[in-house]
């Protein structure tokens, strides 16, 4: 069983990583969702004692690990919080750059930086000239 859970979590993580590398920012958010699901699945799997739900009165036989479930719950909530935040952030970035393509965002940043660099070079040259 541990192999299967590990395999499923790894597939989620791998596809999540693949999506994180996409140029489309919305797909990056999908990637974060998948990676967080992988983490939650791993948390549940980490307490995999395969028993009844840990609710009193306890049935005979094995009981599932309640602690890993509590951790999984917390992780799900945090995952929801950060995903919603990231999605809204992506929306604002798309609106600000008028493009949801990462590549274009990067290109604009590079252009801006190059402009800044040239400006500084020029200022520096002027300073040198003035000093002489």
């Amino acid at each position: 069983m541990s192999l299967l859970f590990a395999l499923a979590a790894a597939v989620l993580f791998g596809t999540g990583a693949y999506l994180l590398l996409d140029r489309d920012l919305v797909r990056v958010v999908f990637g974060v969702v998948l990676v967080s699901q992988a983490a939650v699945l791993t948390l549940v799997a980490s307490g995999l004692t395969r028993g009844a739900a840990p609710i009193y009165p306890l049935s005979r036989g094995p009981v599932s690990d309640p602690l890993s479930q509590a951790m999984a719950l917390t992780a799900i909530v945090i995952g929801l919080a950060v995903t919603a935040l990231l999605l809204v952030l992506v929306l604002r970035v798309v609106q600000a750059y008028r493009s949801e393509e990462l590549a274009e965002v990067a290109v604009r940043e590079a252009e801006r930086e190059a402009r800044l660099e040239r400006l500084h070079e020029r200022e520096h040259a002027e300073e040198e000239a003035a000093a002489r």
Binding site: F5, L7, F13, A17
Partner: peptide
């Protein structure tokens, strides 16, 4: 896809190893 697969494979090794 290659990077994703590498990430998945290493996650698999680590998770399976722990589990």
């Amino acid at each position: 896809a290659v990077i994703g697969a590498a990430a998945g494979a290493s996650a698999f090794a680590a998770i399976w190893g722990a589990l």
